[in-house]
Design a protein around this nucleic acid. Sequence first.
DNA 1: GATAGCACTATCCTTTGGGAAAGTAGTATC
DNA 2: GATACTACTTTCCCAAAGGATAGTGCTATC
Lengths: 128, 128
Amino acid sequence: MKAIVDEQIPNREKCLSNVNAIRDALFVLNGKWKLPLIFTLLERSQRFNEIQQSVQGITPKILSKELKDLEENGFVKRCVYPTTPVTVIYEITPYSDTLKSVLHELYLWGTQHRDMIRESMRKKKDVS
Amino acid sequence: MKAIVDEQIPNREKCLSNVNAIRDALFVLNGKWKLPLIFTLLERSQRFNEIQQSVQGITPKILSKELKDLEENGFVKRCVYPTTPVTVIYEITPYSDTLKSVLHELYLWGTQHRDMIRESMRKKKDVS
DNA sequence: GATAGCACTATCCTTTGGGAAAGTAGTATC
DNA sequence: GATACTACTTTCCCAAAGGATAGTGCTATC
């Protein structure tokens, strides 16, 4: 029993580090607003109030927090111009391009999965 | 102004469907326990109490719920054997293989991102 | 008859994510 | 002096996720 437990440790540690890396990736894309914000800023750089109008439903508090998160993760740059009143422009950084393949894979899998689920629900209906 | 808003609609709709597909994918992998459960069941099929010991910290209530989620999404099969007492074995399905490339991309990006963040924190320290 | 193991379920509680509404500091315009 | 605009912050609130603990129905073993 003890032997089995001990044997599992190397595997478990390797798995844990895999899980943690994957979780890191999931974490930065997580929540209701990260993706809509990235997509809207990919279209064009925008000011705070412009973003609020583009991404409908988001409140200033959440927008402020999410932009900070995106900035900390290097996806967004906050540019302040000393006009009166100050202009703050948020723009997507080149680093965001590194997300491309991840997002593409997620998109492909998500689309396929949605079809699969729809299909399996149809079959259930046919049976009942 | 109205014209601009109208022009954005096709783009926005396309983006929304992309976002939704990606969100579907993120959703099924989300939460604290989905990945650890998938990884532990990839090693070997296990009974309820075995899983509870493999994935340390999970409570029976959460385990029960998560296994149901994974089953609904087609990742896990619940096999009941009419022994006394009943044996319930949870095993990974072949459908889980479709996750491979997504998980791999997430792993690669997560690892690279962690290094990037660590590096940028080191730089900040050097400056201050 | 008591205890233990299996596969859960039920109840209660805390934490976290996110939302509504109002407020703030600075400037500009009427 | 009042109103408005920009870029937020503050306070309070609610719902969902998740955790702690106890219990259930069944059988097997001492």
